[in-house]
Amino acid sequence: MENFYLFLVMCVLLIILPGPDTAIATKNTLISGRTGGLKTVIGTCCALLIHTLAAVVGLSAIIVKSAFVFSIFKYAGAVYLMYLGVKTLWALRSKHKDHWADTEEVHAAKGTSFFKQGFLTNLLNPKVAVFFLTFLPQFVDAGAATFMPFLAMGITYILLTAVWFLFYIYLLDHIRAFMNKPKPQTIMEGITGTILIAFGIKLALEKAY
């Protein structure tokens, strides 16, 4: 593996850049505190592990090179993000004092877990597959076997993602008392829902590489 420290720096910069995973983690942390955020991040990391294994065995190349397969993942991911965004905005219409607690109970009753949201948001994003296939090879020696380097870099990326989101979730949890006041909460719900819809539209308009 070449330039491992440069790889670490690039990973950190990419991870802290806000995206759909951050939006989902933010929403669920504000809904259910630390527990909701942690379950979401575990789902995200499990999806990243699948992306890593897919890159190792070459499945990511199929997704990237096949416009049809890429489109399936792209539109499924876009629809799911927009669904979560619309659902968040719709909650504003039926808002009441204990809305977040009630919403969490409804989610649990329907089997819609925070883990599932984090998992599907990341797994159905074809840009993650493209990232692994285009980013990781830049740090592998020319002509060298890719299995172990890809696996090591993928696991490193997952660990860095987990560390960052743990910090982010604990920070959000500390300011959650303020955010749960009626006005800030309404603003955050509106912003988060709008961002999720925007990410969904952006993903739907993405072209295969």
Rank of each mutant, 00 (worst) to 15 (best):
L30I: 13
Y5P: 00
M82C: 15
N28P: 06
A23I: 02
L53S: 06
Y75M: 11
K95C: 12
L124F: 12
V86S: 10
I158P: 00
V79T: 05
N122I: 11
G111E: 07
L151I: 04
G85E: 06
F150K: 12
T194N: 04
I42L: 14
N180P: 03
L123I: 06
F147Q: 11
Q138T: 07
I42R: 09
K207R: 12
I16H: 04
V56R: 02
I42G: 09
R93Y: 14
L17T: 14
K181T: 10
V57A: 09
A54M: 06
G77V: 01
L6G: 15
R93C: 13
D21S: 15
L203S: 02
G37C: 05
L89F: 10
L160E: 08
T40I: 00
I15P: 08
T44F: 05
L160F: 07
W90K: 13
T186A: 09
K207W: 04
M148R: 09
P126K: 00
I197Y: 08
D98S: 11
N122K: 10
I169T: 08
I201R: 01
L53P: 00
T26W: 02
L151G: 09
K74E: 09
G36E: 10
N125H: 01
H51T: 04
L81P: 04
L159E: 07
H96G: 10
N125P: 02
H174Q: 15
K183D: 08
N28Y: 05
V128H: 01
L124W: 06
L172Q: 03
G36Q: 08
L205I: 13
S71G: 09
S71K: 09
T186N: 08
A142D: 11
L120C: 09
A177Q: 12
A142E: 13
I72R: 00
A129I: 05
T26S: 14
E189R: 15
A67P: 11
V56G: 09
K74Q: 13
A177M: 09
N28V: 06
I62G: 03
E2P: 01
G85Q: 03
Q138C: 10
D141Q: 14
L92Y: 03
L120G: 07
W90H: 12
G58W: 08
F73P: 05
V56S: 07
I16G: 09
K202S: 15
A145P: 05
G43Q: 06
G111A: 04
F139G: 11
H96N: 13
P149Y: 07
A208E: 02
G143M: 03
F131A: 13
L6I: 12
G85T: 03
M148A: 14
K95W: 14
F132V: 05
P18N: 08
L203E: 02
K181Q: 14
L14D: 14
F147H: 07
M1E: 15
